[in-house]
Design a protein around this nucleic acid. Structure first.
Lengths: 343, 343
DNA sequence: TTGTAAGCGTTATCAA
DNA sequence: TTGATAACGCTTACAA
């Protein structure tokens, strides 16, 4: 920094009073003469005095800063969550330090380390795909450091979580496909170690069972990378043999669905006539592609808002969620568009 | 914070040495016996010592934190830029504080204020649509506070800027439309006060002139909000009269183009046969819609990387760009897809 | 090779 | 009503 920011001392010197007097005057402490208050405030204004948050942070052991750990910013869903976080943070005078892990565990760990040394007051986490051991989080939680997990559920018993109802979202999506007469429904699943993937898969299976269809393991294919290309290739293989082809796909997110859509088009299968398709997450493009993609929408903004609101309560000690652990589950919404409607 | 983090003092006390010795040992200063170093480091490890960045920041007047001001996180382009920023910041051990303005000037100002009181070392800015007066920035620059502007060019003479070549991007897009035989080309323009909007409009006009077409003001319509709905409505009006209809659209970004596409479809105009369409920014959905949208791709990640790299150089005093102001202009790339090819 | 002390900007405590 | 002092955690002259 340069800026030669004016400090309390500068004001004190100029006014021939002590820094404590200035400090008090600035915050309208009782026991300071109106005259002094006026002079101090005037000069502060004139010098464009701005309290040094770093000094305050050191003094008070509180930084008004929270850290956010996120896999990738360039994900429509996550950017929505960040947006929700940012709004509430701003409204409560908190700063947000952002770190993206690019789905890497080492980066997750080192980001947490720098954030901690920057004395963040709490942490909002959606952990990386590589994370299977949660000790770096649970260690902190044992020391009562406030953490709220969102979207991705950690395997930590007393964790505070905000997620969407992935089971229900998947269940509704697949039930909808069944109601449209699709019978052989593929699930392009997410990485095994993510709880969200498991939940969606369970929802898929339960919907099949409830719809009188026997689940078939060979119709569940993991698309771990989550790229268009990956699901394109997977889809081509699945639909290669014209005999006994699947007639629908439930993809674990919209990018995966988009890859599948391209693959289907490339082998001249019509959507939704020949194959029904439902994605997940309601990416921005989903309503714009052709045919518009049915999808399960997640309330990203609200997830962000909810997570940080709970975190701030923990920081302010209003609630001790870790003692009575809470798992907030927000509802998804099935958006039925053309890609899955053939009746 | 809680965490009861171990401090240098704790280590010193336990080892019966002074804190300065511990401090020196930790950083391998010369003149500390190997024996002491070993003991100190061992204990530091054991206590899981983590330097307090806040104390350091206060002591050194340097926070290793940079602020990022951005209109909206939920913009594919901006999230790409953030990603680039984040990468370089992480590699250089800098933290990133993020503030989104939601295109509001008051929020821009107050965000800068809190960031400054948090002693950020520099600022990366893409200012809001409401910003027409740049004094809150130039004041800081006069005090030699490092700022790099990206994407949106401020009206400040000695500003350091990183943008893309919007004139050229627009010029190429429109020239391409002309080469495809389109003659009556609409421009759905951006907000007037943004330099990027002006540049794109100028590129559009120059391309027309160079293509032997006389620009027609009535074919330039401002879509300030940039929403699908807005451009949908505008497009309907423009193409309402079957006689002497326009035959192409150059939109100032892809969302606007997508709205126009829907409008054209809704009145049964075929793309690209009847109407050619080119957007701007290469949003993630652009290649997935039908027909795939031709667009001008901006190197968002690279913009972020470049901007922060320059900022770090300014902070480290390696370069004083403000003395020899620099405007880095990165090249766009015209992505020709189906929506604009009819030959 | 190590220790002492001052200082970064602020506030809380105690004293005047 | 105000001031002096110590402290938050760390670094760095200067002294020993």
């Amino acid at each position: 920094m340069k800026l030669g920011q004016a400090t309390i001392k500068d004001i004190a010197r100029e006014l021939n009073v002590s820094s404590s007097t200035v400090s008090r005057a600035l915050k309208d402490y009782p026991g300071i003469s109106d005259e002094t208050k006026r002079k101090v405030k005037e000069l502060a204004d004139k010098l464009n005095y701005r309290p040094n948050a770093v000094a305050l942070s050191l003094r008070k052991s509180k930084s008004f800063t929270i850290g956010v750990i996120i896999p990738e910013v360039v994900h429509f869903f996550f950017s929505t969550v960040i947006s929700g976080i940012e709004e509430v943070a701003f409204a409560n005078n908190y700063n947000v330090i952002l770190c993206q892990t690019n789905e890497r565990l080492d980066r997750e760990k080192s980001s947490i380390d720098t954030m901690l040394s920057n004395q963040i007051d709490g942490l909002l986490v959606s952990y990386s795909k590589e994370t299977t051991d949660f000790e770096h989080f649970s260690k902190l939680m044992d020391l009562e450091f406030p953490i709220v997990f969102f979207d991705r559920l950690p395997e930590i018993s007393n964790a505070v979580n905000v997620t969407v109802n992935d089971f229900e979202g998947a269940y509704q999506a697949v039930t909808h496909l069944i109601s449209q007469g699709y019978k052989k429904i593929v699930h392009l699943a997410g990485p095994k170690n993510l709880a969200i993937s498991k939940k969606r898969k369970e929802g898929y299976i339960q919907a099949l069972l409830d719809g009188g269809i026997t689940p078939d393991e060979s119709l569940i294919v993991e698309c771990a990378a989550g790229t268009e290309k990956e699901s394109f290739d997977v889809t081509i293989v699945l639909f290669d043999n014209p005999e006994n082809r699947p007639d629908a796909i439930f993809a674990h997110h919209d990018i995966v669905a988009a890859g599948a859509m391209m693959a289907l088009k490339s082998i001249n299968l019509r959507i939704p006539e020949d194959v029904g398709l439902v994605g997940y997450s309601n990416w921005q493009f989903s309503s714009m592609i052709d045919p518009p993609l049915s999808t399960v929408s997640q309330p990203g903004f609200k997830i962000g808002e909810t997570a940080i609101t709970m975190l701030l309560e923990m920081i302010d000690k209003k609630k001790d969620y870790q003692k009575e652990p809470v798992h907030v589950v927000l509802d998804t919404e099935l958006l039925i568009r053309k890609s899955s409607v053939r009746l």
